[in-house]
Simulated assay, not measured.
Amino acid sequence: MIIPKNIEELANYVKKGKNVFFFTADWCGDCSFIKPQMPETEAAFPQFQFIQVDRDDYLDVAAEWNIFGIPSFVVTNDGEELGRLVNKNRKTKEEIVDFLEKVEG
């Protein structure tokens, strides 16, 4: 999981490559629930780079992308959004895997 150090680094990931943006926050209980399962999910989808985005550190990005619930996932390919799993519900590993399989097509 890549954790961008600044907005410029985050923007570069948005522009280039096949990426899964995982919006999270330290205080988020549902994020803490899914984080331990993310390495397995990441390993199952090697065609994607997984980018962890702390919603509190990147509030402007979260607002621009309409991320109002976390944890949330947005998949892009060279700057084009391919899909999103964005809501306020707790996510399971199975839900995330199903979502990524559908996006992958």
Rank of each mutant, 00 (worst) to 15 (best):
D60W: 03
N6H: 11
F23Q: 01
T92F: 08
P36Y: 09
E94G: 05
Y58S: 06
G17A: 08
P36N: 07
E8H: 12
P39Q: 00
K93N: 04
M1Y: 10
I96E: 01
I67E: 00
E9T: 13
L59H: 00
L10H: 03
G69Q: 10
T92Q: 12
A44D: 11
I7F: 06
F99P: 07
V103Q: 10
S72Y: 02
L59I: 13
F33V: 03
A62N: 02
L82E: 13
T92M: 05
E9H: 05
E104A: 09
F23C: 02
A25S: 13
D57E: 15
N19S: 10
K35L: 06
N87C: 09
I67F: 06
E101M: 03
S32G: 01
K93Y: 03
D98W: 01
A11D: 14
M1G: 14
E94A: 15
V97Q: 05
E42F: 06
I51N: 08
D30K: 07
N19K: 14
W65P: 00
Q52V: 14
D30G: 01
D54S: 08
K5Y: 09
N19M: 08
Y58L: 09
Q47W: 07
K93H: 10
T76Q: 04
V20H: 07
I70F: 09
Q49F: 07
C28L: 03
N12C: 03
N87I: 09
K102Q: 11
E42T: 13
I3Q: 05
E81R: 06
F22W: 04
V20Y: 05
F99N: 02
K18I: 02
D57K: 15
V86Q: 11
P39F: 00
E95H: 04
V14G: 00
K35M: 10
A63E: 10
M38A: 03
F22E: 08
L10T: 04
I34R: 10
V53H: 01
L82F: 09
W65C: 09
K93M: 07
G83S: 07
L82Y: 12
E81K: 11
I67H: 01
D57R: 13
I67P: 05
D57H: 12
K91R: 13
I7E: 14
K5G: 01
F22S: 04
E94D: 12
F45T: 08
T41Y: 04
